[in-house]
Amino acid sequence: MTYGDDATVRRILKETGDTWAVVGLSTNTRRAAYGVARVLQRAGKRVVPVHPKAETVLGEQGYPTLADIPFPVDVVDVFVNSHLAGEVADQAVAAGAKAVWFQLDVVDEAAYERTTAAGLDMVMDRCPAIELPLL
């Protein structure tokens, strides 16, 4: 099943806003989150690392949770296991994000239903680094 059609993908990447909180982003350059964050930055997005260590990554101050970010976030990009992702989606709704993006292999159908019912755009099991060049 597809969670987030091409129009939703395009809207999030082109129209939703340029501040992306990347949940799971750390200084580990071997992790997918780091590579995707670099692609997002190159595309003009502000990347905000969200990780318990609150490390500065790619020149941006990190925060331990979404609730700790002291400014609005447009999109929450989620690099955590599926069993943890629903809670992150709920936090994104509470934080006032406009959209949630679950990375490849991150799927939580109940979270998708809750998030879209709250009025947010959502994509699951896709990668913005793959989708951006296709626009």
Rank of each mutant, 00 (worst) to 15 (best):
M1Q: 10
M1Y: 05
T2L: 08
T2D: 14
Y3M: 11
Y3I: 07
T8C: 12
V9M: 03
R11G: 04
K14Y: 04
E15Q: 13
T16R: 08
T19F: 08
W20H: 06
W20K: 02
W20C: 07
V23I: 13
L25Y: 08
T27Q: 14
T27D: 03
R30E: 11
R30G: 13
R31N: 08
A32D: 06
A32P: 07
A37E: 10
R38Q: 13
A43G: 05
K45T: 04
R46L: 01
R46E: 01
R46M: 03
V47G: 08
V48Y: 09
P49H: 11
V50H: 00
V50F: 00
H51G: 05
K53V: 03
T56A: 15
T56R: 11
V57M: 07
L58E: 05
L58Y: 09
G59V: 10
G62A: 04
P64L: 03
L66E: 05
A67N: 04
D68S: 10
I69A: 10
I69T: 04
P70V: 00
P70H: 03
F71Q: 09
P72Q: 10
P72E: 07
V73F: 06
D74A: 11
V75I: 15
V75C: 09
D77R: 00
F79M: 09
V80W: 00
N81C: 04
N81V: 06
N81D: 15
H83I: 14
L84Y: 14
G86E: 03
E87W: 02
V88E: 00
A89C: 12
Q91W: 03
A92T: 03
A92C: 05
V93I: 14
V93N: 01
A95K: 15
A97L: 02
A99V: 13
V100K: 02
V100S: 07
W101Q: 12
F102P: 03
F102C: 12
Q103T: 14
Q103N: 15
L104Y: 12
V107C: 08
V107G: 04
E109F: 10
E109R: 11
E113G: 08
T116N: 07
T116V: 12
A117K: 14
A118D: 10
M124T: 07
D125F: 14
R126G: 01
R126P: 01
A129R: 08
I130L: 10
P133W: 12
L134E: 06
L135W: 14
